[in-house]
């Protein structure tokens, strides 16, 4: 039986029009006009137990609305949704016992208290039996090496440390479904790696069904085998990451910073995506030329200060996907 089933989910919001200028502002004081936004327009998918799926899409595409519906926060206009055999927006209290939620930008820990006290409070909130609580906590703390942080007040933790503690906090009641909303947002590169590593181990050892929303393609690449892409309130793609990339483009970007600019000559196999002073971003197809060969060639011909190979940003991929959809 799937852990999550979603069918034809629709959610609309009424948004007040903002009129420009001082006169408009004065009018708005007395009379408002509204227009309707379809945040979810027939979303459907299902998840098997133990799956870790990346839920991606541009800002305002409907990601967080979907998560809010699945978490039981929002009631949709229409559509079917079952999480672990329950309709999330009915019997909120019973539903949320089975889920854990991490909001990347907001901690659920008590700011001025040591981490361990937040954990204890969550035990009371979720009414977890003491024996089970202690076992879960000790296991997670050992798994993630959080022992030394437990007595530190939350406000003194770094963002990355806090995020790891937040993730543990959301798992103390052993939820069967975990929502991770932007878990790496605002983290420095080292902390991002630590959090990803943590999530990978969690996935291996605990097998919690997880929905990960993120802007960071590297998160997806490191963690997810399956990607669901939402845009304009409906599912634009559902499959493996490779399939997504392959369907859209094979290209990679090489960003080069030259020691002195202006000497760029057209090279075979690459096109210039953009240039800014001494910085050039080149796109190439790894089927035509391997990244290592291209770098060797560029470095031999130009005075290079810095080099970086990356995937096209998610926004580019989505834009391409849409270009492709529209004939």
């Amino acid at each position: 039986m799937p852990a999550v089933v979603v069918q034809d989910l629709v959610k609309t919001f009424r948004v007040a029009e903002r009129r420009p200028g001082l006169l408009g502002a004065m009018k708005g004081l007395f009379h408002r006009e509204y227009h309707t936004v379809r945040a979810l327009d027939g979303v459907g998918f299902s998840l098997q137990p133990g799956e870790l799926v990346g839920y991606i899409g541009p800002n305002g595409a409907g990601k967080s609305t979907t998560v809010k519906v699945l978490a039981g926060i929002l009631v949709p206009d229409s559509g079917r949704c079952e999480v672990l055999g329950q309709v999330p927006w009915q019997e909120r209290v019973r539903h949320v016992r089975n889920i854990g939620v991490v909001f990347g930008q907001r901690t659920q820990l008590w700011w001025d208290l040591p981490v361990i006290e937040s954990f204890d409070l969550l035990r009371d909130i979720y009414a977890v039996p003491q024996v089970q609580y202690a076992a879960t906590r000790d296991e997670l703390v050992a798994l993630l090496g959080l022992g030394p942080l437990l007595d530190t007040p939350v406000r003194q933790l770094s963002l990355g440390q806090r995020m790891r503690c937040d993730i543990v906090a959301s798992l103390l009641h052993r939820p069967a479904l975990l929502f991770l909303d932007e878990p790496t947002i605002g983290l420095d590169a080292v902390s991002k790696l630590a959090v990803r590593d943590f999530l990978l181990r969690l996935q291996r050892e605990q097998g919690v069904t997880t929905i990960l929303t993120t802007h960071d393609m590297d998160d997806i690449e490191a963690l997810c085998t399956r990607v669901i892409l939402i845009n304009h309130g409906s599912i634009a793609f559902d499959g493996t990451l490779e399939a997504l990339r392959g369907r859209v483009t094979q290209e990679r970007y090489l960003t080069v910073e030259f020691a002195d600019g202006g000497a760029w000559r057209d090279e075979p196999d690459v096109t210039v995506v953009r240039s800014n002073g001494q910085r050039y971003t080149l796109s190439f197809d790894p089927r035509q030329i391997a990244a290592a060969d291209l770098i060797a060639r560029i470095a031999a011909r130009y005075p290079v200060r810095d080099l970086l190979v990356e995937n096209p940003p998610i926004e580019t991929i989505i834009a391409r996907l849409y270009d492709e959809d529209q004939p």
Partner: peptide, 18 residues
């Protein structure tokens, strides 16, 4: 404003109590 009410809704307790 902070959106912290969402947090209260995903906890299995009455919102008033929280």
């Amino acid at each position: 404003r902070n959106g912290d009410f969402d947090r209260l809704l995903v906890r299995p307790r009455s919102t008033l109590l929280q």
